[in-house]
Design a protein around this nucleic acid. Sequence first.
DNA 1: AAAATTAGCAACCGCTCAGCA
DNA 2: ATGCTGAGCGGTTGCTAATTT
Length: 243
Amino acid sequence: MDGPSGVRKGAWTREEDVLLRTCIEKYGEGKWHQVPFRSGLNRCRKSCRLRWLNYLRPDIKRGKFKTDEVDLIIRLHKLLGNRWALIAGRLPGRTSNDVKNYWNTHLSKKFFGKAVKDVADKTAKVTVIKPRPRTFNKNLSYLKGKAAKESDVQSADHTLSKPYSTPPLSEDGISWLDSLFSGKEGHKESTCFRNGSGKESISSFWDEEISAATKVGETFVEENESDWNHFSFDMDLWDLLNA
DNA sequence: AAAATTAGCAACCGCTCAGCA
DNA sequence: ATGCTGAGCGGTTGCTAATTT
């Protein structure tokens, strides 16, 4: 079971779980590089971290996904793509691995299979561009104050897997995006689920998303500004989160 | 009852990013 | 500006249990 480097791999034993749990309870989460040494486990830090996050953490919820959880996964996946950590963050007690596994085993066939069938039926190629806001670039024309071209916005409609109503552009052509990113008025009362603590504002949802996105390298699709053409926004999810 | 197939889940791997020197 | 290291994420693999033939 040991790897070439002498580090143990494969399934965790009960004893290893106890050692890891004891270590985390004593020293707290984090400093994963020290965990194997502190716990006395012959495991790599990645393995320890994963075991804790996906299995040993006390707040992890086990058992089948409820229908509302499934519904949320579907909607969030539509909005965020395969960003399992973000999706799992909206599902109290569920890990990204859980969500990912559930999607791959239950939902991907259901939806991807259907999509394939739809495409075959229509014999039309549809490219679904999933939004990945973490590739934001501060040099993007939008962030430099340039307005998005309306024609671009309109053309984006054709790239979406589901039609949606694009909020009307104001004179500067960016107001709705502006408010979306700044999390300003109009959304403050909206809510969504958050880690069992009840609710949080939808604006904070986006604040988190966008702040993370803008923080990360501050690269906002510089190499292909037209990516914004494909920015999709799920109004159904918006409604759901507002509900 | 046994073999083959499928489904579900745990764990690993490789990559990217942030922080720091 | 650059390189290094730790941390985190998503894709993929592999094992096991359940189901079907």
